[in-house]
Amino acid sequence: MLCNTHHIMKALIELRNVTFGYGRMPVLENINVHLHAGQFAALVGPSGAGKSTFLRLVLGTLQPTRGEVEQCAEVLGDHCNRDAQIGYIPQLETVDWNFPVTVDQAVLMGLTRKSAWVPWHSAADKVKLGQILARLEIDTLAKRHIRDLSGGQQQRVFLARALIAEPDILVLDEPTSGVDVRTAQNVMHLLADLNTAGMTVLLTTHDLNLAAAHVPWVICLNRKVIAQGTPDDVFNEATLNATYNGDMLVLRQNGMLLIQERMHGHSWRETAPNAVLGHELVSE
């Protein structure tokens, strides 16, 4: 069949002149951000900068006071042919760990919208479940309660729930908060692998060093977009000072970026010079 229309992949998520406020207090002002298919982006900024509000606008659970948020996975002619499907992974701290669900039940929740109005899942759903669990290497944990997993495994469960719905974009709220350094690195490697396989990823994080090491596009937010670009472009002292209203130190070592807030009399060596120290145990 001949067809004179064509499919154009453009911005998956577009925030145009977006302002949002609770009452008269603006939380976000005049935000202009595009996220394209295949992009891997991190949203950074201090607490209260509006990162969660930004995510909620992207997720569609908040509507902007002014401006527009557009989601489009496929353009046909002048119109959006298909809305972007979002796979959302909330902060682990917000999950009710006492809720009685096993890993497979939690992951299958991702298919709820598409599944039939019966309590059980179809054979096709179960095949899909097996594939996703195997891909994320948690297939042996399927019948375990979600509370009885390590932080990294829990993060994989919620990633699996998002991926089983075949989303166009993964949105993660602080995926590395509350987990140890090794687990945080593993989570970021996993996201990078998914991105390499074509998945668009947007996350928020407080860990600037992790973002600098793993995420190719960074949006610095503090009620406004202070800067956006590659970590090399935006992780400089001027931009970070403006973002965090602080005194940031940026070091470049062998191609790596290391970011730290400068200490101003907060070191224990200055505040507690006579601190009582422990002793190393020496075995006889």
Binding site: L59, Y88, V95, D96, F99, M109, T112
Partner: peptide, 23 residues
Amino acid sequence: VFVAYKRLLFTAFDSDVARVYGV
């Protein structure tokens, strides 16, 4: 409850997230 079982389960587990997933 039988018909809405999966929707009720997801909403009870996390209503905000369920909404994002199209429930």
